[in-house]
Design a binder for these strands. Structure first.
Lengths: 149, 149
DNA sequence: TTCTTTTTGGATAATCATTCTCTAAACATG
DNA sequence: CATGTTTAGAGAATGATTATCCAAAAAGAA
């Protein structure tokens, strides 16, 4: 079973557990989220699904995304009035946004994040429950393209 | 000269340098930003100023905030469709948001942040230009109030 | 199966923060 | 003082997101 297949089953399971109806629209959205490599926003998901399901509405996208968020199966990345969604890594992790190409890259696998969390908890007596870390700059491939140009 | 006085002069200087007119509305906003301990949003700034300047409009607040942002004198904290502004520490720094009392606390003075930035640059070959780090949880005073209750 | 009851999905309408536009006022210059 | 030019600011517009409400689907009774 592929990773995306595992994610898909996990999304379906949570929706089922919650007693939600598994309509074709919801199945298609869950599938799309689980295979998406990037971090689509609601409009992008809508436009993609609309080719196959012309009657689907944006509200359905938002409602299902909210359900999946509440179940902890989707992470919302809250950017300036344009939320993007991660259905593959639904836990908090840093994101790197390239100002050149617009890519949203995952920044998990940075070990020093643990130290930062600990220092904040100790220094400020603050109990962290979740976080959103966004770094803006230029990604590796854009830097390389620049150098070779 | 107090810290807030220094900040006020700095805001005025940048507006002047840019060739902006120093209207009473703008002066009042610059003053308010420089003395604000917390992190007000546009509406809060508007409501505060409206008592003294009944004719001021929200658009003026937004426009002047944009000017000051561009001059690097104000930092925008981009939360879920509700931006807050910091006129005292206009450089990127972590913020701690308390889910209980809603306070937005400054998380500057964490040393391990440098290590995190370096690790991201090295691990992903990503050139960071700015960042927004927001930690959600419970602040020290709310934790203490909870314990003593 | 068929009718009734109840819940849930989804299309449209509404909302709200933010931005755009356009008029009028302020400043500089002759 | 008059004239031209720039900019402030009020109200209209925008666009992402959310709320409402109708219809369709499931469940249960006969």
């Amino acid at each position: 079973m592929t990773d995306s297949e595992i994610r898909y089953q996990s999304l379906l399971h949570k929706l089922q557990q919650r007693g939600c109806r598994l309509t074709s629209h919801r199945l298609a959205l869950a599938r799309l989220l689980s295979i998406s490599e990037g971090h689509p926003n609601a409009s992008q998901l809508y436009e993609t699904l609309r080719t196959q399901f012309p009657t689907i509405s944006l509200a359905t996208i938002y409602k299902t995304l909210t359900l999946l968020k509440e179940e902890g199966e989707v992470l919302e990345i809250d950017l300036h009035s344009d939320s993007h969604y991660d259905g593959n890594k639904p836990y908090p992790h840093p994101h790197l946004i390239c100002s050149r190409c617009g890519a949203i890259l995952d920044g998990d696998s940075v070990r020093s994040l643990t130290a930062l969390n600990q220092e904040i908890e100790q220094t400020y007596g603050f109990h962290i429950s979740r976080y959103q870390l966004v770094f803006y700059g230029v990604c590796q491939s854009c830097l390389q393209a620049e150098r070779s140009a």
